[in-house]
Amino acid sequence: MPQGTYLRLLVFFLGPALVLYSVFSIYPLLATILNSLYSHQKDGSFLWNGLGNFHTLLFDPTWSEPFWNALKNNFVFFLIHMLVQNPVGLMLAALLSLPRLRFRATYRTLIFMPTMLSVVVIGFAWQLILSPLWGIAKMFLQTFGLGFLFAPWLGEESSALITVSLISVWQFVGIPMILIYTALLAIPDELIDAATVDGLNQFQAFFWVKLPLIWPTIGLVSVLTFVNNFNAFDLIYAMKGALAGPNFATDIMGTLFYRTFFGNQLQLGDPSMGSTIATMMFLIILIGIMVYLFLVQRRIQRYSF
C-alpha cells in the first residue's frame, strides 16, 4: 500500500475516536491538572502556585482534615463494596448458574433492576424506607418483635456511611452478578461432568474448578468497583446533600470535590483547590490500577475453552 493511502486510512479510522477522546477525556484531564498548579484569586485571576495547592491540601489543617476524612470514608465505602457487593454478586451468580434452577430469568431481571434505576430514585426510596418517622423499616422490625434493633441509621455518625454503602451495594450488586454469571456460563458443562466423575460435589466443583477459572472476571469486577467507588458522588449527594452529613460522616472524595469546586452555602467555589482534589482522585485511581496491573493481573491466568 502506498504510504499516502496508508496515512489517509489511518486518519479515517483512528481520527474520529482520537478527536472525541481528546476533546472529552484528555483535554479535561490535562486542564484539571494544569488548574491544580495555579491558585485562584479573589478577583477571578489565576496565579502560578506550583505544587502549593497540594501542600495546602495535605498539610493545612483546614484542608487536610476534610481531605483525610473523605479519603478514609472513601476507602470504607470501597471495602464494604469489596466485602459485601462482590462476594454476594459471586454467590448470586453461582446460584443463578445452578442447572436445575427455575425462574432463572425472573431472578436475574429482578436483581439487576435497581442498577438501571436512577440513583435519585433509589436514594429517595431508601430514605423513606429507613425514616424513623414514617419509614417501614421500623414497623417491619417491630412486626417480628425486633423493634429494639431499629436506629436512625442514616442519621447517626457511626452508621450513616455503612448504611449508604450498603444501599449502594444493594443497587449495584447486579453488575458483578451478571459479569460473573456470564463467565460461569462460558465454562463447558463437560468440565463439570468430569469433576463430578472425579468425585466432586456441586460446592467442591465450584471452588476447585469454576472459581479458579473465573478469577480474571473477579479481578475485572474488583477494578471496576474500585474506579466506580472512588468516582462515586451521586448517591451521597442524593441522600445526604453536598454536606455529606451527619458531620461529614458520609463525605467521600466526590462530595468533597463538589463542595470545593462549585462552592456550597457559605463556602465559596475554588476552581484551583477543586482541581487539586480532582487531580488527587485521578492519582489515587491511577495508583490503584497500577497496583492491580502489576501485582495482581500478572498472577491471574486467563483460559480459553
Binding site: 463437560e190 469433576a195 477459572l213
Partner: peptide
C-alpha cells in the same frame, strides 16, 4: 469426554 474436559488451570 469428546472435548477431553481437562481442567485448564
Amino acid at each position: 469426554f469428546q472435548s477431553y474436559a481437562l481442567y485448564p488451570h
